[in-house]
Write a protein that binds this DNA or RNA. Structure first.
Lengths: 356, 356
DNA sequence: CATCTCTGCTTAAACGTTTAAGCAGAATAG
DNA sequence: CTATTCTGCTTAAACGTTTAAGCAGAGATG
């Protein structure tokens, strides 16, 4: 920067003003400064700027468990949204347990981040940290900033299954302690309506008895008359799908399976999984925007009032993707099949038909 | 920091020396400074330090495609290894295309990172960037720094399948342009030996004709006498598994399926997938260690000689995880079943038996 | 006793920005 | 013609560290 100043015979302050457009600089000089800066390949020192302004231009992303298959989507969306407003993203993995989560948060703060995005471990509440925070969980979580409308997503699944004619549905969740899963369940039940018999299976409970990754006993459930298995995540849906197939139960001919999240594998398995997609890009954009508002506000009036993003929690609609793993039950009432548009063609390469 | 200095009646420089252990400070004073620092909750300004020393304590992680299901493992391992040596990790997603990759790299550099870890998009070579770089690809890639020994992993799969008695094996890859996949194929073929008939199927080629996520025609292959399907990734293995099951072909009773990478779902599907795991933690540790060496060296003699990490590329062994998706072919020669220890029990909850 | 070395600290400069304050000249107003 | 305002720039301080250089006193050495 001083090189530019020297080359043009002006002061460094003027160059700074010219580039930032802050002070009073003649338009003509601004041009020359810009040109010179481009010529010498000037890149401002973020460190110096951070030192002076107290803002680093970096956000922290705290994830409950990086091995979460949804993580790539989240990280990509957040990174993208942050980059669009000129911010970098520092990742922190809390590897499941709460202590590590706290430690990770502290590490981020020591690094001098301007704000934080937290996808909280299920069940944890984020205590006040010393910087703007956006929480990405589910609308019903207190302190949540923005998230997909999991309840609504569940409702779409419920309504869809009911409309296909299913009258006995098994909801498969992992753990009742997850707010996200609770919301999804509420939605599914609501969407199914009161006419549909419906039971919930928690994989964690089953695993307590039979060990991790055990079978869930779905073949038996099918024998009991359940015709649809609404899993609360694609991982569970995949587990259900393969378990049923492995037991010789054909999907969707004999029973239907649906998932959540549109994970990477949901479209490549056979039959491809009907699922509900979160619009991560929008969630990320809203989260970043909310953070930016707080950061700006903090910069203006830096009394330590607004540590938490509190705009009324945005809920982003989810999108039902109807694929091949769902269909009318064998005993379906004729005429109820408005939602069953796809013949199950062996080489049906459709990535997913979108409802609505 | 100046507060500590004032409170103890010494200069700020002395406090700095005391905390860093650099200059000459009496042990007794060091104690008092440490105590005071803890008392007032002193956290050093990374920005100021970065400005002064030119080192930010941040590494960049460039990923080819964040939606890669292996990404969580990589990111977690890298973040962990970096945190252990006091570094933060800034992520950059190159969303597949090369232009974005270059742009992402530049963004990182402008942020003033000390070094970079790149998992290159298949086929791309990393040109000289202006900072230390570690490339994580596969040993046969020129410029590779450290990676799992994919060739060896392939060999383990090949040998294992051959030992089970398979004599006609289909290798399923995505694209011949991937160095990782090439190495894996080489290993598999080598491990199978010359007695085994073996063909390779590229999913990308099939998809060019039938569209994305189409079926791969594996039932037909099974009819042709292929008894084992060695996929080069767990995603392909999953695709194979479900496609076969969906066609009514039982795994592993009729044919075997194996994958690579021990992805999140490989242990929960039925039957659980035999796969080969990369020791990401070790890869990450080695990569970080290599980066540290270059960064240190750069700091000492800062002539711009060593921009690339060039320790002879480390190759980390892979580990075959034998699960339920592989077994002896129906026509297996009796006595060849040394590798088939597990009865296929419906509720077999084994997460994976480890060979060797 | 004079000189040298070592110890434990201080002083001061530097890193590269931003930004408040100031100042000379030109334009405008009375 | 003087007083005011505006314009376009400069000066200087500040952000919080690190680190080279310096310096006074204590102990060792000749």
């Amino acid at each position: 920067m001083s090189a530019i100043a020297a080359a043009l015979g002006v002061s460094a302050a003027t160059v700074s003003n010219a580039l930032s457009g802050k002070g009073r600089v003649s338009p003509e000089l601004v041009q020359r400064v810009r040109a010179k800066a481009a010529e010498v390949g000037y890149v401002p020192s973020l460190a110096a700027r951070a030192l002076r302004t107290g803002r680093t231009g970096v956000l922290g992303l705290v994830l409950p468990d990086i091995s979460n298959p949804l993580f790539p989507q989240i990280a990509q969306a957040i990174e993208n949204a942050a980059a669009n407003v000129g911010y970098g993203v520092l990742i922190a993995d809390s590897r499941g347990d709460i202590a590590t989560q706290t430690e990770a948060i502290n590490r981020l703060i020591e690094r001098g981040i301007d704000g934080m995005l937290i996808v909280p471990r299920r069940g944890t509440r984020i205590s006040d940290v010393g910087c703007p925070v956006a929480v990405l969980d589910t609308p019903s979580t207190p302190g949540n900033t923005v998230s997909a409308d999991h309840w609504d997503g569940g409702m779409q699944v419920g309504r869809y299954l009911a409309s296909l004619g299913h009258r006995k549905v098994l909801i498969i969740g992992r753990s009742p302690t997850s707010n996200v899963q609770s919301d999804r369940i509420g939605g599914v039940k609501c969407g199914l309506g009161s006419e549909v018999e419906c039971d919930t299976l928690w994989s964690e409970k089953v695993e307590e008895i039979y060990g991790p990754n055990c079978m869930l006993g779905l073949a038996e459930r099918a024998a009991q008359g359940f015709t649809a298995f609404a899993a609360l995540s694609d991982l569970l849906a995949l587990r259900a799908l393969t378990e049923l197939q492995h037991a010789g139960i054909s999907v969707p001919d004999m029973v239907s399976v649906s998932g959540f999240d549109d994970s990477i594998w949901s479209s490549v398995v056979s039959p491809s999984l009907t699922t509900v997609r979160q619009d991560m890009a929008t969630v990320a954009d809203l989260a970043i925007a909310a953070l930016m508002r707080v950061i700006e506000a903090d910069a203006d009036a830096d009394d330590a009032n607004a540590a938490k993003v509190t705009s009324d929690p945005d809920r982003v609609p989810m999108q039902l993707l109807v694929r091949q793993s769902t269909g009318a039950p064998k005993t379906a009432v004729p005429g109820a099949g408005a939602f069953h548009p796809h013949a199950h063609h062996p080489n049906n390469s459709t990535a997913g038909e979108v409802k609505q």
